[in-house]
Amino acid sequence: MSDMSELEQQLVDWLADMNEDEALALAKKMLLEDKVNPLRVLELCRASMDIVGKRFEEGEYFLPELVLAGEMLETIGAIAKPLIKQGPGEAAKRLGKVLIGTVHGDLHDIGKNIVSFMLDINDFEVKDIGIDVPVAKFIEEINAYQPDVVGLSGFLTLAFDSMKETIDAFESAGMRDKFKIMIGGGQIDETVRAYTGADAFGVNAVEAVNLCRNWMGVAA
């Protein structure tokens, strides 16, 4: 990222180091008192999330840090976004579109949320359509969103069948070859991938990002 002032660097560090109170106070001050361009503040947030993502990949950070980071980002975003005058022009940076959801019968969402978060901070545009998603809703959302990759998440053994059913329905709807399909969640492995007919599975969010990068032709 372009040169940072000392204060800007401080915000990035506090966010990346999970100093929530300090980071939020500083971000508020920058936005509301110092009238720093909100796009600049969001850029700083993104820089800090790059660090968070890296620390997660390297095994220094775990779920608590990702959850907290996501929330800090949301809080700052909520203050910054109304202050933005022109469109952020962010879309250009996006590597590809990913639609993700937890398949029907399954309510587990933490893993899916982490995957969404990691994809987002790695420059993918993500549409998360929630949990317990019926087959018809997947199809409807895919038609509207036209993703490059569809991610199915599931933690229960019953999700194996839900995933298979969902992917079979993509086939019947004639859309199976329009996007890549990745699956993941606690029990998902190669056996389940073969059973469901997905293109790939990932055991964690880092693998999810790598799968998408490969499919989009981006060097890892």
Binding site: T157, F160, Q187, I188, D189, T191, V192, Y195
Partner: peptide, 8 residues
């Protein structure tokens, strides 16, 4: 493994 038991 549960995936093995259910689909293997």
């Amino acid at each position: 493994s549960p995936s093995l038991l259910t689909t293997g």
